[in-house]
Computed example of a mutant assay.
Amino acid sequence: MPTHTALATLPAGLVWQGRQLAHQGGPVLPTGHAALDAELPGGGWPGAAMTELLADQRGVGELSLLMPLLRQSGPARWQVWIAPPQMPYAPALHAAGVDLGSLLLLTPATAGEAVWAARQALGSASCHVVLAWLPQIDSAGLRRLQLAAEQGSTPLFLFRALATARQPSPAPLRLALSAQQGALRIDLLKRKGPLAHAPVVLPLHGDRP
């Protein structure tokens, strides 16, 4: 019996095919963007892993992309921002629906301290989400952060330069972000499953903090 015929006789779901998205291990958090959810394993953000958001410039819509998730945080769970390049504008975040009482802003003095702070936040079991801007981090640091996210069952979003896309990373999801005529273009550089052949383009109106 030919191999493809034999495989076709097996129960549905028993065999994974390369053209199918893989199942996301651990919890999954909807992104709030249906077009993006359709391209992600499990239909959302990895809830216990590191996601890398790579861009050549700031302010292309990276916070708008995360806004539906940030709105879900309540006072009993922290959302930790580590070393953002600019001070978050509280009135805009409040107007966008973010609970400012749940926001914890950390400004470590060095890159090493920032990695340490991210690991502590991820391992605290008290965070809804951790956001970290770490332009300088080596492979060992990336592995430690991915492990901390898994062990703490907490999503980590790591903002880095687009040039780092050429470097290997343990993150199961890596997205390249860029502005495209008033919208956010998302190129899926890495995901569990087949390569993405087209970008996801999301409108930015009404969701900028």
Rank of each mutant, 00 (worst) to 15 (best):
P2S: 13
T5P: 00
A6V: 10
L7R: 08
A8H: 11
P11K: 02
A12T: 15
L14E: 12
V15F: 09
V15T: 15
Q17W: 14
G18N: 12
G18W: 11
R19N: 14
Q20P: 06
L21C: 01
G25E: 12
G25C: 03
P27A: 15
L29C: 04
T31S: 13
G32V: 04
G32M: 09
H33I: 05
A34T: 15
A35V: 05
D37N: 13
L40E: 00
G42F: 02
G44Q: 06
W45P: 02
M50A: 05
E52S: 04
A55I: 02
D56G: 15
R58C: 07
G59S: 09
L63I: 14
L65E: 01
L65K: 03
L65R: 06
L66K: 04
P68Y: 06
L69H: 06
L70K: 00
R71H: 11
R71V: 09
G74W: 11
G74Y: 09
A76Y: 11
R77F: 09
W78T: 00
Q79S: 07
V80H: 07
P84K: 08
Y89L: 12
Y89M: 13
H94S: 15
D99I: 03
G101A: 13
G101M: 10
L104P: 06
P108Q: 12
A109I: 05
G112M: 05
R119I: 12
Q120P: 01
L122F: 07
S124I: 08
A125K: 11
C127S: 09
H128K: 03
H128R: 07
W133Y: 13
P135W: 01
I137H: 02
S139C: 10
G141T: 08
L145Q: 01
L147F: 14
E150C: 02
Q151I: 08
L158C: 13
L162V: 11
T164Y: 03
T164S: 14
R166G: 15
Q167T: 11
S169D: 04
R174I: 05
L175A: 04
A179K: 09
A179F: 01
Q180Y: 07
Q180P: 01
G182A: 10
I186E: 01
D187N: 08
K192V: 01
G193V: 00
P194R: 04
H197G: 10
H197E: 10
A198R: 15
P199Y: 02
L202I: 10
P203T: 07
P203D: 09
H205A: 15
H205R: 15
R208S: 09
